[in-house]
Design a protein around this nucleic acid. Structure first.
Lengths: 197, 197
DNA sequence: GAATTCATGTAACTTGTTACATGATTTA
DNA sequence: TAAATCATGTAACAAGTTACATGAATTC
């Protein structure tokens, strides 16, 4: 999916600059959607050409002028078309580099792999911290947020929390299995499986 | 991350054609890594230019000749460098289209959103079915698989299983919350929150 | 007779990342 | 005095998708 729909969606809450949009991404939906600032600007340009957003300048002194983007009717239509569509792969991208690395685990030592699982746990713990810290605080970034929006934000948070918790549990179980083999190795140097410790 | 390391990794198990590689992806690691056939061919070309793989032709009659790729020493080195490195984002891509759609849930009806959660559940159930069906069967695709590789495959399976289960649980909880509001709406038409049923 | 499998790719396009450039103001 | 913030982008590159092209053999 393209970043465009994310931009259009945020612009339904109110007009914003490219800078605002990228801050919004970074500080709110960042745990499931990130956007690099240069791509935001490029895609806003495309959206403008397509007529999905319009822009006007706000002159400032001592700072570059603000270019404020507003979603147009055809932009709203395109956004709603996307939102109510049911694409074949709705659950998100398939690619998971971590899983691929585990799959190739026989090429590194068990201790190295164990360390990577621990890093995964740390990252997911940070996600959880982010979600807890952020509960109900996103009105900082957009005043247009209503109780309804809060409800949907909380649903994403709930999903994110449960999946992050599960990742941690899964990683802990994997570490347990690794430790069992490490113990076997330390007990008997003539072990049959000959894993790299 | 680039597909290249996935290709190099699979080629450590044995020499293969581009066609074999794309079949391998599709029928084994597909639940956490997919690859389009055209990209496989293109990246194999790049890898050959870079000296990470070498190729030789196997002439066939009635069928196009096979171009069999073999990983070189420098390819193995590059693969191991990647595998033992610790990139900033090891846990996989951040983008999750499903979460973004939920975030914008106020723009569609609760019934539509409920339906999307049910679709998520179905997709994750299929992942689980795939993982159960596939346990220990990947030697179909590569005879070089050892007990050690089986162990690491099982770790990816364990992670995938736990996360898929959690997604289903999360989605069910979200559906519960949606249903509570739908009930409120059906009981009182003058509800204060005025959600779209 | 139509679809699938085997086996190769090219071309055009979209999407995402990284590095660079500008330049005043504010904070540490 | 160095850095971060505000605010705009461009250019080059890397990665991923979709459509197209070839053509025999096999399966439904």
């Amino acid at each position: 999916m393209s970043l465009k729909y994310g931009l259009l969606g945020l612009l339904t809450y109110g007009s914003m600059t490219g800078y605002d949009l990228s801050l919004f991404f970074e500080k709110s939906v960042n745990y499931f959607w990130n956007a690099s600032i240069s791509q935001v600007y490029r895609d806003l340009g495309t959206l403008e050409k397509e007529g999905y957003v319009s822009a006007h300048l706000e002159v400032q002194e001592g700072r570059p002028d603000k270019k404020i983007y507003t979603i147009t009717q055809s932009g709203k239509d395109a956004f709603l078309d996307w939102l109510s569509s049911f694409p074949s792969n709705l659950t998100g991208p398939v690619r998971n580099e971590f899983q691929l690395r585990v799959f190739f685990g026989s090429h590194i030592s068990l201790k190295e792999l164990r360390f990577q699982f621990q890093r995964l746990i740390k990252e997911r713990q940070e996600t959880i911290r982010f979600l807890e810290e952020f509960k109900g605080e996103r009105h900082k970034f957009c005043n247009e947020f209503t109780d309804q929006d809060k409800f949907f934000w909380n649903l994403t948070g709930k999903m994110g929390y449960i999946v992050a918790k599960a990742s941690i549990e899964g990683a802990e179980e994997c570490i347990k299995e690794i430790d069992e083999i490490l113990e076997q190795i330390s007990k008997a140097d003539d072990n049959p499986k000959s894993f790299k410790s």
